[in-house]
């Protein structure tokens, strides 16, 4: 595209947007709604994904040792636990350490329970080599007699979460695909109408020797502008909601192993992605609809 022509193409595209005001408005709204749904879905999916992997990281089997167990019995339990297959490491956390953890998370008030008043148990923390083994390992640990007070693991919940995640991801991808397809269709229809009103003009352009690209550029720019404008609305809504939601939810999640994706860079990536999708569907939509008219 020649530099001189670029100015003309941009001017033409703005003229067409103005001339077809209501259609432009309709197309921008269509893109805005579509991208709002697409953006929210992506933000949701990515965060569910993040939570799932947080859970995955966190899955370990906690074996609580019964209160009043002798040191030698504890040693025996440790070697028994060592016998279990698929264990990567065993950590020991004494009741004092456990209390420190609790105080760290929930506040110094729990310092009241220090010393003999400590209601917590000594704990062996078993990390499995793969998350799938957690349930098996937990079962075996439970069989180890009266020194074991209780065995606890997040495995069952994790398994269900992983399964759900897979479904959510697939369904989400299909919905996102369908939404983008709809947006392309709506934009190409809008531009088809604006082209239709200019088809004599296009015919004359062809007959006096304008190249196809010369004719196509204003429509492409028009489509891209519509797409871009349509993307700005969901971008602002999603940014606002995510920033507010992030602060609120992170308040609840503090002290847990879970966290949401931080706005920097995640929100910035979503913004760039939505603007790009807007521009791309806009220009694809318009080039689809102009194709037919260029065959003169």
């Amino acid at each position: 595209m020649k530099f001189r022509a670029a100015g003309r193409h941009i001017k033409e595209s703005f003229k067409s947007i103005k001339r077809n005001g209501w259609m432009t408005f309709a197309a921008i709204s269509a893109v805005a709604i579509t991208l709002l749904l697409v953006g929210s879905l992506i933000a949701l999916l990515m965060n569910v994904n993040k939570l799932a992997s947080d859970v995955e990281e966190d899955v370990s089997v906690r074996v609580y040792v019964a209160t009043g167990t002798e040191e030698s019995e504890q040693e025996a339990l440790r070697s028994e636990l060592d016998e279990i297959d698929n264990i990567e490491s065993i950590e020991f956390s004494s009741r004092e350490e456990e209390l420190d953890n609790v105080m760290g998370s929930y506040g110094e008030e729990f310092g009241l329970f220090e010393g003999d008043d400590n209601p917590l148990h000594d704990v062996f923390i078993l990390n499995t080599s793969l998350p799938e083994y957690t349930s098996v390992v937990a079962e075996e640990a439970e069989q180890l007699g009266s020194v074991v007070d209780n065995v606890n693991y997040g495995g069952a919940e994790a398994d269900r979460l992983f399964e759900l995640m897979g479904t959510v991801r697939n369904v989400g991808a299909v919905i996102i695909g369908a939404l983008i397809f709809t947006a392309v269709f709506l934009i190409s229809n809008t531009i088809r109408i604006t082209i239709f009103s200019r088809r004599t003009e296009i015919e004359i352009m062809k007959l006096v020797g304008a190249t196809n690209w010369f004719i196509r550029w204003p429509f492409l720019i028009e489509g891209a502008l519509i797409g871009f404008a349509g993307a700005l609305i969901p971008v602002s809504i999603i940014s606002y909601v995510y920033l507010r939601g992030f602060d609120t939810l992170m308040g609840y999640l503090s002290g847990t192993y879970f966290s949401l994706l931080p706005p920097n860079p995640f929100l910035i990536q979503i913004v760039i992605l939505l603007l790009t999708i807007g521009i791309v569907i806009g220009s694809v939509g318009s080039s689809l609809s102009i194709r037919k008219f260029l065959k003169v």
């Binding site: 015919e203 004359i204 007959l207 006096v208 020797g209 304008a210 004719i215």
Partner: peptide, 30 residues
Amino acid sequence: RRYVGVVFQDFKLLPRLTVFENVAYAMQVV
């Protein structure tokens, strides 16, 4: 098409453009 000019029976002028603009248009688009 720049080598062969065409005149139609129904003129095919652009109604929204002036006489000058109609002629200039053909040169702008090339």
